[in-house]
Design a binder for these strands. Sequence first.
DNA 1: AAACTTGTAATCAAAACAATTACATGATAA
DNA 2: TTATCATGTAATTGTTTTGATTACAAGTTT
Lengths: 144, 144
Amino acid sequence: MSISSRFAVGIHILALIELNKEGVTSSEFIAKSVNTNPAVIRKLMGMLKKAGLIEVNPGIAGAKLAKELSSITLFDVYKAVNVVHEKELFSIHESSHPDCLVGRNIQNTIEPLFTAAQLAMEKVLKNVTLEDVVKDIATKENNC
Amino acid sequence: MSISSRFAVGIHILALIELNKEGVTSSEFIAKSVNTNPAVIRKLMGMLKKAGLIEVNPGIAGAKLAKELSSITLFDVYKAVNVVHEKELFSIHESSHPDCLVGRNIQNTIEPLFTAAQLAMEKVLKNVTLEDVVKDIATKENNC
DNA sequence: AAACTTGTAATCAAAACAATTACATGATAA
DNA sequence: TTATCATGTAATTGTTTTGATTACAAGTTT
């Protein structure tokens, strides 16, 4: 199992809006870069808009960032596109048997451990901004 | 999207084998505690056996731990039941357009970030042993 | 009014899961 | 030996999630 590529595509969208800020970044333009369907992009743009990361309006072509590039973290995108819910990176088998010592306690024992692991992962995402991503893209390009 | 409950059930199985070490821990016995089908348990037991965590033989009822409880980490179980592959906790959209600055670089930029996040999560799992889990189950039981 | 955009719903195929059934194979006790 | 019970494993099924696609309403611009 894998965390949905919506997350990677969400980052792609935001980086593209930034790097194309002189131009008009429509859903069709983005869709070509991502190589997918414009409706997929519009769905994601709706999520990014709802999370306050971009500005986009019906009928008006193009999206703009709603915040400073350096103030958007990967965690913001991760939450915006809703790939993993709180405390639900790991799923816990729900219906253990209450008559069994292990069955009736395993869930409460495991849950905080799983949550801690998830938080450690999310902390890494909080420490990377879209500015880092965009700069890295530029660096990679210049070294080619 | 969530990481398969195979992981939680794998931990359950090992804890149960330990806490029932005086008795015979058959797939049917485990299945009752987990409240699922014995064939599901046998599949998981096969994975745990392949990973060298338990000993179990065809025709002979019951499984035993193959290692010290304190030397089995949650990460060992996580790898054994194969819920997440290396560097694949996050999926990356594969077919970005190479003619676009962002499209041709985003994948290489994002990949190490995703890997770092995954490793942070896995590090937490490496620092918890099944002994911790079993002790916690006992503690919870005594406080009821 | 025509052409273009975003917003959104409905549909579809593919993949992953977990549950279930079935049965071959191995071990053990009557 | 035969009956019984265990593990090992394959096939099937219903459910859920994804991502792609089509379609169209509603807003904007020329």
